[in-house]
């Protein structure tokens, strides 16, 4: 069911939806970027269309709701534990096609990876989606190469806003929600959510990555360039790693809480083990691990690549490292290795 309606009428629909759902969308946070008077676009709860940032790509992904950066799982006293309260309200997440594809990856990791993670499952059950139409590619996007540029289902409704005409076009998949659109006076129309058909950035993912690529000297460049800040991981819609913290309150060490906090395979400490061991010490080794996980290892288990080509890692990297370019370099190295012309190797 397609509908066209005015901005005001759409806000009426959002108002009605707000009675049953929290609405979670990209929001422009004025001056909250890492530099003075620079904004950041990240996810937060909204009530109206004006609050939703539709012009810019969000710097941080929607995943912060499903996998919070910092989450208290339970509290413990001497002999007892109590699970932390969690919100029970349903949520509609507004996201673009690439991020819809990222949801599938998060589900694969947290729900289909041998057993379901209860904390993820608990919040995931409450979540539905609204697709933000994507009329044009942003800088660094390579969704077409990663086949995440089109989404045809999995959402309650889509949203394309023609600012000049003050008109919202929606492809509504859910019958109850279609009623809300009709009540708001929306007129029926054929609506196909806009989607990107071409990006400036293109990548070729290798089918096979020979072992020689693991020891290729191409990674050395990143040992020198990368500052292991982990921004690429924290903005990534598909990075799922976390770590655990048991905290004992400072004024009473017999009471505390267990937290799950976001983690990054690029930052120090990620592979630290007892006895001072560290599996991937250099930044280049970490970059290799991240890259191959995103475009090779994950795929071997689940049948599709983890990376969705949103390009947020390239947007955020303070050292101007392009992950898209790394994929292409790996592809070239893989081809060369397969042809027996491997590049410079580490022992």
């Amino acid at each position: 069911m397609g509908y066209v309606l005015s901005k005001e009428a759409f806000d009426e629909v959002l108002g009605k939806l707000s009675e049953d759902f929290l609405l979670y969308s990209p929001v422009r946070k004025i001056g909250e970027g890492c530099y003075t008077d620079v904004d950041v676009v990240r996810y937060d709860f909204v009530k109206s269309l004006d609050e939703i940032e539709l012009e810019a790509k969000s710097n941080y992904a929607f995943k912060e709701l499903l996998t919070p950066l910092s989450q208290t799982l339970f509290f413990f006293t001497e002999n007892e534990t109590k699970e932390a309260d969690s919100d029970t309200r349903d949520v509609i997440i507004f996201l673009r096609s690439c991020d819809m594809h990222a949801v599938k990856r998060l589900d694969a990791i947290y729900l289909e990876n041998k057993f379901a993670d209860p904390f993820y499952e608990r919040v995931r059950k409450r979540v539905k989606f609204a697709l933000i139409g994507c009329g044009h590619s942003f800088e660094n996007c390579f969704c077409v190469s990663m086949k995440s540029n089109v989404t045809t289902d999995g959402y309650l409704f889509s949203l394309d806003f023609d600012r000049d005409a003050g008109q919202v076009s929606c492809d509504v998949k859910d019958e109850d929600i279609a009623k809300l659109f009709e009540e708001a006076g929306a007129s029926a129309a054929d609506v196909v959510p806009s989607s990107v058909t071409e990006n400036d950035t293109k990548v070729t993912v290798p089918d096979v990555v020979p072992n020689a690529v693991y020891k290729d000297k191409l990674w050395d460049e990143y040992t020198a360039r990368c500052i292991k800040c982990g921004r690429c991981n924290f903005v990534c819609p598909t990075c799922t790693c976390y770590t655990m913290q048991d905290i004992f309150y400072t004024d009473n060490g017999r009471v505390g809480e267990r937290r799950r906090v976001g983690s990054s395979c690029m930052v120090d400490g990620y592979t630290n083990v007892a006895g001072g061991g560290e599996y991937r010490r250099t930044n280049g080794e970490r970059m290799r691990f991240k890259t191959l996980h995103k475009i090779y290892d994950f795929s071997k288990r689940f049948g599709y690549d983890m990376c969705v080509g949103c390009g947020r890692c390239d947007d955020v990297c303070p050292e101007y490292i392009s992950f898209a370019n790394i994929i292409n370099k790996v592809n070239a190295a893989a081809k060369a290795a397969a042809a027996g012309e491997g590049g410079a190797q580490h022992d």
Binding site: E32, G33, L69, G230, G262
Partner: peptide, 18 residues
């Protein structure tokens, strides 16, 4: 503001006031 510049998650942000 060095903490703000290096924070990878926006846990640190700048005050609205200069």
């Amino acid at each position: 503001g060095v903490c703000v510049a290096y924070c990878p998650t926006r846990a640190w942000t700048r005050s609205k006031e200069h």
